[in-house]
């Protein structure tokens, strides 16, 4: 069985020292090993951004696509071969700005994939512009007077879109993050894991210390019941989205693959595609 080391490759990430994304990378590698995967059984599909580079830093199958489209690509991979474990990942701009439409619909569709967002409240790769996750008043290169748009709450959106698994974590808490990714991988359906992953270079407000001060950890509430949708929504609003842990999980709803009529357990990619003469004639008969 593979250990987390097998999910490491020899590429040195080009992230800034101290970037939150390093821990996300490590957590994915650990979680993949912990759930018993082999590298070839995992496909990591990422978007564009500093965070999007992650697929190149994990020893598994990986596709680094285009900005905002990690989710549809990942869903294509899963539909083509449901025997694979598929992780989609990217930044807050990737998933909640340019790719927001896909995020909502991927949630609704509920294919069995795990979506990990590295949320640094800023655009890192393009060197510091505002993101939908930036706080009102946040000054960036593109908002020199401070952001005048309201901050997007991906957790509330995910709740209302019918998500079956919503979690949030923090780069500094490798243990919790790893456990949540494991839970996401084990969840039979779409899992959204939003990770506060500080950008040490361009975001001088939402720093490691700032998160430590502001986060509420659900692990400290033993009575919290993640299967209660109403309670989950309340908790998100109560904490203004600044909570970590497993926020909501619906284990009842079947994943998309399991709802498609006639869809088999065997991955489509492993099935025979040759049509027989008999099958062909049946198709032709309709046109006579």
């Amino acid at each position: 069985m593979a250990t987390f080391k097998e999910f490491r490759n020899n590429v040195k990430p080009n992230w800034c020292p101290g970037c939150g994304d390093f821990s996300v990378q490590a957590a994915i590698q650990r979680a993949a090993a912990n759930v018993g995967l082999e590298p070839e059984q995992l496909a990591v599909i990422s978007g564009i951004g500093c965070s999007g580079r992650i697929s190149g830093y994990i020893n598994a199958y990986g596709l680094h696509g285009i900005h905002g489209r990690a989710l549809p690509i990942a869903q294509g991979v899963k539909l083509a071969n449901r025997e694979l474990t598929v992780i989609a990942s990217g930044g807050d701009g990737d998933g909640f700005a340019i790719g927001m439409g896909h995020t909502v619909h991927a949630i609704r569709r509920n294919l069995d994939i795990t979506y990990i967002v590295m949320d640094n409240q800023i655009y890192g790769l393009t060197k510091g512009q505002t993101s939908p996750r930036s706080a009102e008043g946040f000054k960036t290169k593109s908002t020199p007077e401070g952001s005048i748009e309201s901050t997007l709450s991906p957790l509330e959106i995910a709740m209302s879109a019918g998500a079956t698994f919503i979690a949030q974590s923090f780069s500094s808490d490798l243990k919790q993050l790893t456990a949540l990714i494991e839970a996401g991988l084990n969840h039979k359906g779409f899992s959204l894991i939003n990770v506060f992953s500080p950008c040490v270079t361009f975001n001088k407000v939402n720093t490691y210390d700032w998160f430590k001060e502001n986060i509420v950890n659900l692990n400290e509430f033993p009575d919290y019941d993640p299967s209660n949708r109403m309670a989950a929504m309340n908790k998100i609003m109560e904490t203004n989205g600044m909570l970590t842990g497993l926020i909501y999980q619906n284990k009842e709803r079947k994943s998309y693959e399991n709802l498609i009529a006639g869809f088999q357990e065997q991955g489509l990619a492993n099935q025979d595609i040759q049509l027989s003469q008999d099958q062909f004639e049946k198709l032709l008969a309709e046109f006579k």
């Binding site: 869903q75 294509g76 991979v77 539909l79 083509a80 009529a261």
Partner: peptide, 25 residues
């Protein structure tokens, strides 16, 4: 054994097709 997905837009349609081709279908 296959299926059709009505996507949210054509960008999703084409990128989903890219993902599925990459994965061998």
């Amino acid at each position: 054994g296959g299926t059709v997905v009505q996507t949210e837009d054509e960008i999703a349609a084409v990128t989903m097709a890219i993902g599925a081709n990459y994965a061998g279908v």
